[in-house]
Design a binder for these strands. Structure first.
Length: 864
RNA sequence: GCGGACAUGGUGGAAUUGGUAUACACAACAGACUUAAAAUCUGUCGAGCCUAGCUCAUCCGGGUUCAAGUCCCGGUGUCCGCACCA
């Protein structure tokens, strides 16, 4: 006899122990011949201190796939590790006088215990942290190989300097001109930095997106926009009036060389070298350039801002029109960072150019005509014409469509020689810029090179790896402690042996997370990867994580796979075959009228809809129910997974986050929802108890078959929904089945064997989501094996087939009744039967129907 | 401003991809059990009406179709991304 209530705590501990003892979830390094492998990975966590509900959801989702695929007979790799380098450890070190290393490993210990309490089917034997010397030693080897292959290089660059964190930020880490972590105003500084040549793969990174069939379209679009390919031409415009500059010409990049005859002016960025040169002795221009800098950098902000220009008084010559001069402006809407930082303005066919031209009274020359009236240019007043058509008023381009005009214009420019070089050429540009990886931080992977006064930058010898971080550092002053650590910093040159200095920059933490998935294939390999093992497991079949990594992490990992392929460390170039971006865990927020945030635990609720009220239990004060937001400490809307697991058990927490919303949408955490999930746990437990106590009965065939049909229908549906990560729908199927078994168990019509059998199938479907409960119930039903080691049940297809089916019958598209017919009855047979129905006869009242639409197995529609 | 996604009961959502709209769950309400509560069980639960049934209803307005939550056109709202990308 099972105990009255299900005790999650004891049961969960027991089965976690048994799974661990049986090494059930350790992937075999050498999978059995012919056995298919499946690699499921959730984005590994940063060890910030404690796990939160977002982690619970993320890892529960991955665990369902892992357990399901294991039951399906796959050799499954489901590892866990720690993205352990990064600034929070140093911030904590400065604040609490702890050491980043101690802080990080303490957090890992805490979070490991928390994750283990969730009962995840992880292969803990492969665990590592990116701050483990062994891991970053291998990363240093990769760096040296990239350096050797020309994929890592140094260049002077203006960098985004975060004055609070005292570090350089990637362009991607600057948000609205502020550091993404510190929020401090970012400054521009000139430094020599290490870069990875991600631009080497721009085209491939873009093109290969098409091969990623199991990625969300949204993520692929975001990456494509980020890479930002544009095809066009580079065109040189020689100065006619060029006083005050040493330059002889302005080079522009354009995607529309076809509209060159519509050119009305030139515009250059405020940071353009020519603008800078002219500003040297022009106070008004200096002021204008300062004004440009003040403008926000976001698209939306600049769009609201007025387009401003500064007439330099200089002019350039039009490449095709003899004697035509174009005035040169410095303009606030031109970006130095893209193309050449200069454009030719074609006001008639670009809205921004038109706005600018109207403001400064510049020429607006329309050169595109409707193909039906090729002589008449489209009139342009306040709206630029950007549609299709044929060129007009453009001499040799007249009558050509856009694409052929572009090609013809480029050909002509190519043939016009200016100072010994063609005046223009076709060019493809990408927005994607190389990845700056240098960070002036301590808690990161040291870059393994040495600076020698005589030899320059010398890669560290491989036999000297790892370059270990020194432990004896302090954080009492801002800046990089490695810079003021003489015994670590001062070394002999690996080349000439003379005194030299170690590189004190460390690598961006995105480097650490760009190849960990490959290391998991064999985390003890002497080389960065065991290529054979990596080839067996990679690409990751299902990768799961937040949408916030849609660009940076995923693009960097895709670059790394290519770079590692080029240096012989990997055989695949796409690291993640399937990608799933899960939603967040959100919660309502509550505030008093004075604005104090209140935790949900202190609140009584009443009413519903618009009348719903939140009352502060202690004082009776009515609270303001705020927005539903991502759980955060500052909003007091956090629910700690430890508390939930202590109160309800891990299974209840897992079941709730999996069942309440589609996995890619946000799930709203609610007490009532968790209670509901927990009630189901108890209900299932009682049902298993009831069924296990049943005396042997035979029931009757019809009832037995009816329940079996429901069970196998549910099974066949769940079998589609789990691999599709449609967990909320799978849960609904399970509820329907449990309801049916519950009803059947209340009478003696269904045999005890059928009840046990269908309940066993139910448990197997539940096992990926609530593994402990399923395991315990499985045991109570008398099974001797572990459910976690049992194969997935086969759907009995014969039970899905029906001899008779019920077809809904519509009259003029509205359902008016049902028709029961043999499943294999043909269309004309169905039509004949339908017309015999009373309500159809009544509706027809003697007339013949205009049409009878029969969709076999689906529906009948009688049109009168 | 540009690009993208979404909109279904009091709530989360389902709908076999054009074929019975609202599955499943939460909340609510009523009843049973109980001295009482909790737990559990049984029912009701889109709106309206002339209630064996009918009408309306998937953000709003049109359209295609025998049939539209689903497709097309035009709006509205919410959310996400953005680097004025020449």
């Amino acid at each position: 006899m099972a105990s009255e209530r299900y005790n999650a705590k004891t049961v969960e501990n027991k089965w976690q122990q048994r799974w661990n003892d049986a090494k059930l979830f350790e992937a075999q390094t050498q999978p059995a011949e012919g056995r298919e492998t499946y690699y499921v990975l959730e984005m590994f966590p940063y060890p910030s201190g404690r796990i939160h509900m977002g982690h619970v959801r993320n890892y529960a989702m991955g665990d369902v796939i892992a357990r399901y695929k294991r039951a399906k007979g796959y050799e499954v790799l489901h590892p866990m590790g720690w993205d352990a380098f990064g600034m929070p450890a140093e911030n904590a070190a400065m604040k609490n006088k702890t050491h980043p290393k101690g802080w990080t490993y303490d957090n890992i210990a805490t979070m490991r215990t928390q994750l283990k309490s969730m009962g995840l089917s992880l292969d803990w034997s492969r665990e590592f942290a990116t701050c483990d010397v062994d891991y970053y030693a291998k990363q240093q080897k990769l760096f040296l190989d990239f350096l050797d292959a020309g994929l890592a290089y140094r260049k002077n660059a203006t960098v985004n300097w975060d004055p609070v964190d005292m570090t350089v930020l990637a362009n991607e880490q600057v948000i609205d001109g502020k550091g993404w972590r510190s929020g401090a105003e970012v400054e521009q500084r000139e430094l020599t930095q290490w870069f990875f040549k991600i631009s080497e793969f721009s085209e491939d990174l873009l093109e290969s997106l098409d091969t990623l069939k199991d990625w969300p379209a949204k993520v692929k679009l975001m990456q494509a926009n980020w890479i930002g390919k544009s095809v066009g031409a580079r065109v040189r415009f020689p100065f006619v009036k060029g006083e005050g500059t040493t330059a002889t010409e302005i080079e522009v990049f354009t995607t529309r060389p076809d509209t060159l005859y519509g050119a009305g002016f030139m515009a250059i960025a405020a940071e353009h070298p020519i603008a800078q040169e002219l500003a040297k002795d022009n106070q008004r221009l200096i002021t204008f350039i300062k004004e440009c800098r003040k403008l926000g950098t976001t698209a939306a902000a600049i769009d609201k801002a007025e387009k401003l220009g500064f007439d330099t008084g200089l002019t350039v010559a039009h490449p095709f029109i003899e004697g035509r001069e174009l005035p040169v402006y410095v303009a606030n809407f031109i970006l130095m960072g893209y193309g050449t930082g200069a454009v030719f303005g074609c006001a008639a066919h670009d809205q921004r150019d038109l706005d600018f031209a109207r403001k400064y009274d510049l020429d607006v020359i329309s050169v595109i005509a409707d193909s039906k009236t090729p002589e008449v240019a489209m009139p342009v007043e306040d709206i630029a014409y950007v549609g299709d058509g044929v060129l007009t008023s453009s001499e040799f381009l007249n009558g050509l469509t856009k694409d052929s005009a572009i090609a013809t214009a480029i050909e002509k420019l190519n043939g016009q020689i200016l100072d010994g070089k063609p005046q223009g050429a076709g060019e493809t540009n990408y927005k994607l810029r190389d990845w700056g990886v240098s960070r002036q931080r301590y808690w990161g992977c040291p870059i393994p090179v040495v600076h020698c006064n005589d030899c320059g930058v010398i890669p560290e010898k491989e036999e000297n790896l790892p370059i270990e971080l020194p432990d004896d550092v302090t954080f009492d002053v801002p800046g990089n402690p490695l810079d003021r650590h003489p015994t670590w910093r001062d070394v002999d040159c690996p080349s000439c042996g003379k005194p030299a200095k170690r590189e004190t920059d460390t690598m961006d933490t995105f480097v650490d997370s760009s190849w960990y998935f490959a290391r998991f294939a064999d985390p003890t390999a002497e080389t960065p990867t065991n290529v054979e093992a990596a080839s067996r497991w990679l690409p990751v079949d299902q990768y799961i994580g937040g949408i916030e990594h849609a660009i940076l992490h995923l693009l960097y990992s895709r670059f790394f796979a290519r770079a590692m392929q080029a240096t012989g460390h990997l055989e695949v170039k796409e690291p993640f075959k399937g990608l799933f971006t899960q939603g967040m865990v959100v919660h309502e927020t509550y505030r008093t009228k004075t604005g104090t945030w209140i935790t949900p635990a202190e609140i009584d609720f009443s009413g519903e809809g618009e009348n719903r009220k939140a009352i502060l239990a202690e004082t009776g004060e009515e609270l303001i129910i705020g927005n539903i937001e991502k759980m955060s400490k500052s909003k007091y809307n956090i629910v700690d997974p430890d508390d939930i697991i202590a109160t309800y058990g891990a299974d209840t927490a897992r079941w709730f986050v999996l069942s309440d919303s589609p996995p890619d949408r946000d799930v709203i955490w609610s007490e009532a929802g968790v209670d509901g999930a927990h009630r189901f746990v108890q209900r299932l437990w009682r049902l298993v108890d009831t069924v296990s106590e049943k005396k042997t009965t035979n029931g009757d065939d019809a009832a037995n078959t009816a329940l079996l049909k429901i069970a196998h229908k549910a099974l066949s549906n769940v079998d589609v929904m789990i691999p599709g990560l449609r967990y909320n729908s799978a849960v609904a199927q399970i509820y329907t089945l449990v309801n049916a078994i519950d009803q059947a168990a209340k009478s003696d019509k269904t045999s005890s064997d059928t009840l046990r059998h269908t309940l066993s199938i139910t448990l197997q479907m539940i096992a990926p989501m609530m593994p402990h409960l399923a395991e315990e119930c499985w045991h109570v039903l008398g099974h001797v094996t572990m459910i976690s080691a049992s194969p997935w049940p086969e759907t009995d297809k014969s039970l899905l087939e029906e001899s008779t089916i019920t077809l809904p019958v519509q009259i003029n598209g509205k359902k008016r009744g049902d028709l029961e017919v043999a499943a294999d009855l043909d269309k004309s047979g169905v039509e004949e039967e339908v017309l015999k129905l009373d309500f159809v006869q009544a509706a027809l009242s003697g007339k013949t129907p205009k049409k009878v639409v029969v969709v076999p197995g689906r529906i009948v529609n009688v049109v009168i």
